[in-house]
Amino acid sequence: MHLQEYVRKEALIMLQNALEGSGGAAVSVAYMEAFRLILRLGVGDKSFIVRIAAARCLKAFANIGGPGLGVVELENSASSCVLDDPVSSVWDAFVEALGALFALVMNLESQVQPRAKGPSTPEKKLEGFLQRHLEFTFVKGIP
């Protein structure tokens, strides 16, 4: 493992620990920035250990209730996850993360609501979300 890969992996592990430690109670802007970093820097990384760390961050995000996640963010995470990765441990990690995110979508009451006042994510926008992404991502992997 190269030093740069190690640093990126450790940074994502620190982010995962911070997410888990916050329990969804921090400022929503911090969560949105963390989410963007995970998708932008971790999910598409060349190193499989960094991609696994990114998937674990996504799972941690879902486990704390997905604070600040809306339909757009959930769809971006579902479409960004690499389910055709040649490394089976990466594939497994992303499947776990997507499963946790899909469970969050199915049970909107468990999603942490941002502190700011404003409209919550309407259920109508979530109609077809699971079918669209399950059909595309999971069926795509069937030989």
Rank of each mutant, 00 (worst) to 15 (best):
R56T: 05
A11L: 08
L83E: 02
E96K: 09
Q4H: 07
Y31W: 05
K125S: 15
V50M: 01
V7W: 02
A116G: 09
A100G: 07
P114Y: 10
H2S: 14
F102I: 15
Q16R: 15
F138M: 07
V87R: 09
S88C: 10
P119H: 10
F102P: 00
A30M: 09
P122Q: 12
P122R: 13
R56I: 06
A53E: 02
L39N: 08
R51N: 06
C81A: 15
R40G: 06
I13E: 13
M32V: 06
A55M: 08
E75Q: 13
G99C: 11
C57L: 04
L101G: 02
A53D: 02
E5Q: 07
K125V: 15
G118Y: 03
Y6V: 07
L74P: 00
H133D: 03
F102C: 12
R8W: 05
I38P: 00
E123T: 12
G118M: 04
K124T: 14
E10C: 07
Q111F: 03
P86R: 10
S28G: 00
C81I: 13
H133K: 01
H2V: 04
L126Q: 03
F35W: 10
A55V: 06
A97T: 09
M14W: 00
E135T: 14
G65A: 05
I13H: 04
V43T: 10
Y31M: 03
N63F: 01
D85C: 03
E109I: 07
K59R: 15
G42L: 08
C57T: 03
P67N: 06
G70K: 03
S47F: 08
P143L: 14
G70E: 06
E127I: 15
H133E: 01
S28I: 11
S28C: 10
E123Y: 05
Q113E: 14
K46D: 11
T137V: 12
L39M: 13
V82C: 11
P86F: 12
P67Y: 02
F48W: 10
Q4E: 12
V7I: 14
E33S: 10
A93Y: 06
V139F: 14
S80Q: 10
S88W: 08
L37T: 09
E33H: 08
P143W: 08
K46W: 04
F48S: 12
L37S: 10
M1K: 06
L101P: 04
F136N: 13
V27N: 12
V27E: 14
C81H: 06
A18M: 02
